[in-house]
Each structure stands twice: as structure tokens, then as C-alpha cells.
């Protein structure tokens, strides 16, 4: 008879609140350039949400603002306004809106935007994240996990993979902060990541493992590029990981109950 509050927009607002520490640090250290990029990303993404609302009756979502923020923080530098607008449009439309909006998409629109721009304009240098943003990722993850909108298992899996790599003597260098920021901004998106307990551990492990692998084998890549590529691949693998976890769960149940 009574209704609760955990609908899509509540989750989106809580996610937005969780990444606020990172957003504020980014704006504080990024100056006017950061504000400009964020404004552009918000306007383009908002425009597409508006178009899909009018043409396809899809309610717009605050999740668009989260994607815009992630794009503004991680997008390659020295791109023109047109190129940026093109990339954000592609990610927002093809990765989110054509599926029916946030909650029905497969891959995070920000991840697709970043990968698209990275592949299309390989000459554009990837940003160097200032260290305070990476520190701000820690409270962001804590808030997200505390409210239950991000999964502690994904974070745990990624950290576990990192610890393994450290134990085997891998030197993380500048990749570690970038990987942390991308983990919170892109990988922990509850829609685009795995949704079962086991699948989430695997998702985190896979992301961490891919980051380590790229770091060791892909010498020419920038830290953010490594992290974004790992996020893209682990997000694409998420349904498979879920399927595996469910298969395992069903097999265990079959053994117990016949």
C-alpha cells in the first residue's frame, strides 16, 4: 500500500551526491577550462535528453549529469568544441538514449564517449589528473557504498587485483590515481556493471586485472587511457560475468535441493 523512495531518480541523485567531492576538487583545480568543458558536456547531454523526451517520451534523468561530469573530467585535451560535442552526442545517444534511457543501457555513456574520442582523435593528449581528485575518489566511493548505490564488491575486487599486482612487484606509478578515479566514475555505475554478488567481485577483479595488463603491455598509453579502456572492456563483459555467477548459483542450488 505504501511506496518507498528508491526509484531511478533517487539512485541517480545519490550517485551525483557521492561523486560531488571529486567534482568539486576537479572544478577547484581545473579553473575556467574545467568549468567550460563541464558546461558544454551538460548542455549537449541535456539537449539530447530533451530531444528524446519530446520525440520518444523518455523521461530525462539526472544520470545525464553524472555522465557529463565524467566526460568533462576525463576527456582528452585540446579537442575543439565541435569534436567534443560530437563525442558526447555519440555516447549519450548510442550508449544510453536509444536503449530507452538510464537503467536500460548496457554500457556507461561516458565510457563510450571517452573511448570514441580516444579512438577518433588519437593525437589528442589524455589529461593528467591532479592527485587531489584521486584522493577525493576515496570519500566518493565510501559515500556511494554507504548508501548502497555503488557496490562495495566491485571496489573490493579492483583493490584486490591491485594488491596482487603490488605483491608481484608491479610499480603502479601514475596509473593508480587514474584507475581509482575511473573506478568510481565509470566502473561503479550500478547499471553498466555486474548485478550479482559473484559477478561484482569478478567485475572488479577484471577491471583491476585489465589495468595491470595494459600497464605492463601497452607502453605508449596514457594512464587515463589505460583506465578508460579497462572500464570499457569490463563493462562489456559484465553481462557475461553475471551469467556465470547465476549459473554457478543455480548449480549450487541444484546440488543442494535436487
Amino acid at each position: 500500500m505504501i511506496r518507498g523512495i528508491w526509484d531511478r531518480e533517487t539512485v541517480a541523485l545519490l550517485l551525483l551526491a557521492a561523486i560531488m567531492p571529486m567534482a568539486l576538487t576537479f572544478l577547484w583545480f581545473g579553473g575556467s577550462g574545467a568549468i567550460g568543458r563541464l558546461a558544454l558536456a551538460l548542455i549537449v547531454a541535456g539537449l539530447w535528453h530533451l530531444i528524446f523526451m519530446l520525440a520518444r517520451a523518455q523521461p530525462p534523468s539526472f544520470a545525464g549529469a553524472i555522465a557529463a561530469l565524467a566526460v568533462a573530467m576525463l576527456v582528452p585535451e585540446e579537442l575543439g568544441m565541435l569534436q567534443l560535442a560530437l563525442g558526447i552526442s555519440f555516447g549519450s545517444v548510442m550508449a544510453e538514449l536509444v536503449f530507452g534511457g538510464w537503467g536500460r543501457n548496457v554500457v556507461n555513456p561516458a565510457t563510450v564517449t571517452l573511448a570514441f574520442l580516444g579512438f577518433s582523435f588519437p593525437a589528442a593528449p589524455w589529461p593528467e589528473l591532479v592527485l587531489p581528485i584521486a584522493w577525493a575518489a576515496i570519500p566518493a566511493a565510501l559515500i556511494g557504498v554507504g548508501f548502497g548505490v555503488m557496490s562495495g564488491r566491485i571496489v573490493g575486487g579492483a583493490v584486490l587485483a591491485g594488491v596482487f599486482a603490488l605483491a608481484f612487484g608491479v610499480e603502479p606509478g601514475p596509473v593508480l590515481p587514474a584507475a581509482g578515479v575511473v573506478l568510481v566514475l565509470l566502473v561503479c555505475d550500478p547499471v553498466a556493471s555486474a548485478a550479482t554478488g559473484g559477478g561484482r567481485w569478478l567485475n572488479g577483479l577484471l577491471y583491476g586485472g585489465l589495468v595491470v595488463l595494459f600497464m605492463l603491455a601497452w607502453k605508449t598509453a596514457a594512464p587515463v587511457q589505460i583506465a578508460v579502456s579497462a572500464a570499457l572492456f569490463s563493462s562489456l563483459a559484465a553481462p557475461l560475468l553475471d551469467e556465470a555467477a547465476i549459473g554457478l548459483w543455480l548449480a549450487r542450488r541444484r546440488r543442494r535441493h535436487g
Partner: peptide, 11 residues
């Protein structure tokens, strides 16, 4: 128009 509304997998 959006029914069934999407449900976000949270804790």
C-alpha cells in the same frame, strides 16, 4: 510511456 520503470540494482 516509460512503464515498466527501470529498476536500478542497488543494495
Amino acid at each position: 510511456a516509460a512503464r515498466p520503470l527501470p529498476i536500478i540494482p542497488t543494495a
